[in-house]
Nucleic acid binder design. Structure first.
Lengths: 194, 194, 194, 194
DNA sequence: AATGAATGAGCCTTCATTCAT
DNA sequence: GATGAATGAAGGCTCATTCAT
């Protein structure tokens, strides 16, 4: 078995690029096969349908995103650091693996909606960080899921506009500003003056 | 204007519902014609193609969204009030016209990307409010487009999760919390203690 | 409505010819469309699938066969005459509409088996004739369904071999011989010497 | 010979079962390989194509049928006994090896028509019996091929309906009745009263 | 203007066959 | 000899678009 999982990965990679470029419905199996350098029929040796392929692409990317985030958070203990690392992690992932990032945050909102239920581990991770910070007095009391949604939205929307050239600020400054804004939003009152 | 004059509006409404339910590619012209109560061929008397119809649906909704927001902001002068009205306006529009809202904020990100360039007036409106607030000393200095992106993301992501039942907070509390978090994020330092 | 059912009939006729020539599975929708002088898509305006088309072809032929047989039996009262008319009717139908006949008696045995359950009215008609003849003393006592099966088999197998040139006897003689053999087989004993 | 030496027989047996269940066209080489416990490619080491396999299946079954019939007729001399043994032989073969029987008498009529020309030895055997019986005065004069066709039809059709539960008569009675009916049909007149 | 039957390009999927291992 | 991944030619079916009525 020289390259046991290679063809499958070629397929997933080719599909990712095309799904992002033209949507899932807009991508044909022929497109995918051509880009992966295989024949159409071979797709069905690895996946039972185009739909399953799309689902696997999504899961594959989510998994990679998830592992990336966990690595970013490895050496943080302080809830504030954790939050900053989380935010920075998303920005970094989006920069290094933009297609993966983009697929996770756009495809699943329309064509794969039914497949992504309950799979957004990152959002749950964020809520956990917030709860921890609240318990330790770093963050003010607010519903953690609500706060998580807001923070996630801040980050992803900023990335979206940044990618489209609509935010005339350097990459590093954007990350710093987003992280600070975030803390400003959720820090406990008494810390505001510090 | 209870019922539109022409079939054109029937078409746009029928298309909106279906585009949201099944995506643009996933919706057939037959579906649209059936729901609009006309025949397939008639679609092409009003629009040159399905693609143009989709574009017109998007513009139509964006226009309605835009008018709705302007109405919400009519009697505000204070930048903080304007910002709160803006935020509340989006929430209200999303509640009252969820399909329109949803189409604007999700469909265009994938299937209509090329059609929505530079048409997001609301985001420009938000940036203007921020600039105004900064000039009058209400808001701390930050790049207005960046702040606008963050605020827009906070709001839209919150609405998305709320619709999916992932935020266990009452509608009114969510709006209040989002607005306050927003102010907390962008207010000048000296106001923090107030 | 100049020719309201014409296309549908063209389709059924084209399909019949091809199904007989190459089997149902062996016939492509493209073949059918070409022969019917229409485009492939048009098939699906009249039938929801190739399978449904095949079923309708079968039912259509069975219905025509059934009507043909009833007409042949119209002016018979005597059970023996009825039986002879029945046998002659099958031969005649096979000669005049051989493709229809052939489809009824061969296709349904393999590819359409599940569709023809309980639809073989002719066999039930034959059993009824036999029962009547037994009640009136013309035919000897035997299980009518068994006798019907035997007679049907005699006739259809003979037609099959005749079509293939394996029976060197004139058409009229074959019919006469089959009918007489049949009577000989089922007549009551006392009639044997006549 | 409990287990065949080679995979070839495994293949033929697997193919037979599947061809009967789903037709030749309806059976895939993968199905066959799976059921035979070999890999797809191996089929082509034994047969040059699926079509050849099907043909060999047919010939194999016909050969077994033929040998079975000859064995049944071994100890008969009297033409009437031979005929009865012949009829009984078909019923027995159909009962003991129904799939083989069924394949011979149904598959070849549609999907294998071109392959079965002139191979129906049993029918020729039957004609020979009839000629012999006529020469010895047992059977009345009739064209032997025609008589053979009728008898074969009687038997096969009866078996077909019996298998489908449409003939409410015991197996033994059916055989007896068919044999007697047959004799009644072809015996010379003078024997009718006996 | 409106209709809806017809079109035909193209889609996803299947499967007999091949061939490197 | 056997394997099973890969092939690629169809196959059944869909659907945006056209056009005679």
């Amino acid at each position: 078995m020289p390259r046991p999982i290679s063809k499958r990965d070629d397929l997933i990679n080719a599909a990712l690029v095309l799904f992002m470029k033209k949507g899932i419905k807009g991508t044909t199996t022929r497109d995918i096969a051509n880009r992966a350098g295989i024949s159409e029929g071979t797709i069905y040796r690895h996946f039972s349908s185009k739909e399953e392929l799309a689902q696997k692409v999504f899961e594959d990317n989510l998994e990679k995103f998830w592992r990336f985030l966990r690595r970013e958070l490895r050496n943080t203990r302080n809830p504030e650091d954790m939050l900053c690392a989380f935010i920075k992690g998303i920005f970094e992932f989006a920069r290094k693996h933009h297609r993966r990032y983009s697929f996770i945050f756009s495809a699943h909102q329309t064509e794969l909606r039914r497949l992504s239920r309950g799979k957004m581990k990152p959002k749950r991770m964020l809520a956990r960080i917030l709860r921890l910070g609240q318990a330790q007095g770093y963050f003010r009391p607010m519903q953690p899921d609500l706060a998580a949604a807001m923070i996630l939205g801040m980050v992803t929307q900023t990335i979206f506009y940044m990618r489209n050239g609509l935010i005339p600020v350097s990459y590093e400054d954007v990350i710093r500003e987003v992280a600070q804004s975030c803390l400003r939003m959720i820090r406990t009152e008494t810390l505001a003056g510090s």
